[in-house]
């Protein structure tokens, strides 16, 4: 949570409220687990930028990583942790609150 004001926007989680991390969290919230390449191609970011954001989310405890081999190719899968899922639900609830309060948001 950020800020001390009463407007609901102050309650938006800064860990999620950035374009790339928002897309990552939205994808992970809609699935059980998602592979790195799917995220990279769907969000249209470079490997390095995605890795950087994934590390940030992992360090915050929102995302868990699992490495697995598909044949000879390594694959990296991501899941939301219960904390991450809870944080994303709270984030969406805050967005909806903002939208209800300010029709032009």
């Amino acid at each position: 949570m950020s800020g001390n004001g009463s407007h609901p926007r102050h309650a938006l989680d800064p860990m999620i409220h950035t374009p790339v991390r928002l897309s990552i969290m939205a994808a992970l919230a809609a699935a059980d687990k998602v592979e790195f390449r799917f995220l990279r191609d769907t969000i249209e970011v470079s490997d390095s930028l995605l890795s950087k954001h994934m590390l940030t989310l992992e360090e915050s405890g929102y995302v868990r990583v699992e490495k697995a081999f598909v044949g000879k190719k390594p694959g990296t899968w991501y899941f939301l942790t219960p904390t991450g899922r809870e944080a994303f639900q709270a984030y969406v609830a805050t967005l909806e609150k903002i939208m209800k309060g300010t029709p032009d948001a």
């Binding site: 926007r9 409220h17 950035t18 374009p19 928002l22 897309s23 939205a26 994808a27 919230a29 809609a30 769907t42 969000i43 969406v92 967005l95 909806e96 903002i98 939208m99 300010t102 948001a105």
Partner: peptide, 14 residues
């Protein structure tokens, strides 16, 4: 990133 944009992006990813 506005609330509307954020919700639209969530919908797109979903």
């Amino acid at each position: 990133l506005s609330a509307d944009q954020a919700l639209r992006e969530i919908g797109r990813m979903r």
